[in-house]
Write a protein that binds this DNA or RNA. Structure first.
Lengths: 242, 242
DNA sequence: CCAAGAATGGAACGGCGTACCAGAGACGAC
DNA sequence: GTCGTCTCTGGTACGCCGTTCCATTCTTGG
């Protein structure tokens, strides 16, 4: 057994938690949750496991850090200029749609994100992710004129809908990719729609009836429609102050 | 190397996909997603991996089957007699609340369920889980008088909210358990609330303002409040027919 | 110049999901 | 009855995973 071979040289660019998290996000984006491995991470960073473990406690913490980094980028004002880079004077409804769409788009850009949010959001809720989202939504909830004792319930309802819908949407786009490299969203929805039409008419009358709508629906539009349902319900529940 | 030892006897009770799924659900309930292992599963069923793989393709399929089994039980009419064992003549709003609560309770009884729903619901959406939920909600959406071209959007919005909120809630109760054996939900919420109150006042004014509400809120009540927001929005969007 | 600490990365460990396959029971054909 | 065939079983082995351990190297302050 040869003694330990000495390492060639100290690395040119110092390892850091930031560099590790950045590489983790890239790996997750490239090949999904199963693509993030300490093995490929060490290879990518040209280092050993021990070096990574010096900066990060374990894989769960790494996933949490990656999630937080992406959410922070998505929620940050003006991160994506969808409705005008976080215009401060916009209508509160538009502000909520803006935040919602930013999160929606983030889960689409990072398909692994939705599952992480669902799993880890409050696994350690002292964490930074939940407050980030809540805060992004909450400002606008307050601006809507919701009475203070309804703030938490209202903002939570919005957050839950956004996370649920975003997760579902990701699952859809992922499935489309799984169908094949050149298969697109339409092919996938066609497959699902056809499967639904084949269901038992006695047990699944409704699902069969909406199969056609499912085939032709637009994810983003449907997502915003759900947000608007909530906004309507919220506005109906309190006297609209000017 | 001794030749293969012959097995003692053919098993008394035949293995079946049902028995395997049942055991899987029990293991998941007992010790979470990481508690479900082919090793302990073979031990529990007094068999070998090959026998299991004869009935089930792989672990993903096993998880999907377990998820489907639990959802089927939860959505089935009268599975839990919360509002009267699936009264057929109830108001459509109550019907929706009923289905929502059933799923909410299911995710609480099976803490692993929410993550599975988020991850796998449409990983294979030709699967049975999504139609089951959609159907359970859809009947009542129709009864609400929603025009047909809004069926899919409306039912989807409800489903997304339910899944998102249920997942969030599970994360909360799970975290409470992690705090310690005798720690209860109150201790956990107290911890979270305290952490939120310690946030930067400039960056997190809203979250700090709702920290106290978070400490004292009731999960079930808040969940239903969100459902009602959606119901209000839905009813406002179309002429209420008798 | 040298001791002390921070940071590194190679090797090894236990456990996981899974593939493989020899063999045991069930059962119809003759 | 016996045989061949098909269904089902469970033991063994493989490759990869997250993680631990630790000798070694670079950096820093006295």
């Amino acid at each position: 057994m040869a003694t330990r071979t000495r390492r060639s040289q100290r690395r040119t660019e110092a390892l850091s938690r930031e560099r590790i998290v950045k590489a983790a996000v890239e790996l997750l984006d490239a090949s999904g949750e199963s693509g993030l491995t300490f093995r490929v991470l060490t290879e990518r960073l040209e280092t050993g496991p021990g070096a990574i473990y010096w900066h990060v406690a374990n894989k769960d913490e790494l996933l949490a850090a990656a999630t937080d980094a992406v959410v922070a980028g998505a929620v940050a004002t003006g991160a994506t200029g969808i409705t005008g880079a976080g215009e401060p004077s916009q209508e509160p409804e538009d502000g909520i749609r803006d935040v919602a769409l930013r999160l929606f788009d983030a889960t689409e850009a990072h398909p692994w994100l939705a599952a992480q949010l669902a799993t880890q959001l409050s696994r350690n809720p002292g964490g930074t992710v939940a407050p980030r989202i809540l805060e992004g939504i909450g400002r606008h909830v307050r601006a809507l004129g919701v009475p203070q004792d309804g703030w938490f319930t209202t903002a939570s309802a919005l957050m839950h809908y956004i996370l649920g819908a975003a997760g579902q949407n990701v699952a859809n786009t992922e499935s489309a990719r799984a169908l094949g490299p050149e298969a697109d969203r339409g092919d996938f929805l066609g497959t699902v729609s056809a499967a639904w039409k084949r269901l038992d008419p006695d047990d699944y009358p409704f699902t069969r009836a909406v199969a056609e709508q499912a085939r032709t629906h637009d994810d983003r539009e449907q997502f915003l429609a759900g947000v608007d349902l909530l906004l309507t319900g919220i506005n109906a529940g309190h006297p609209r102050t000017a």
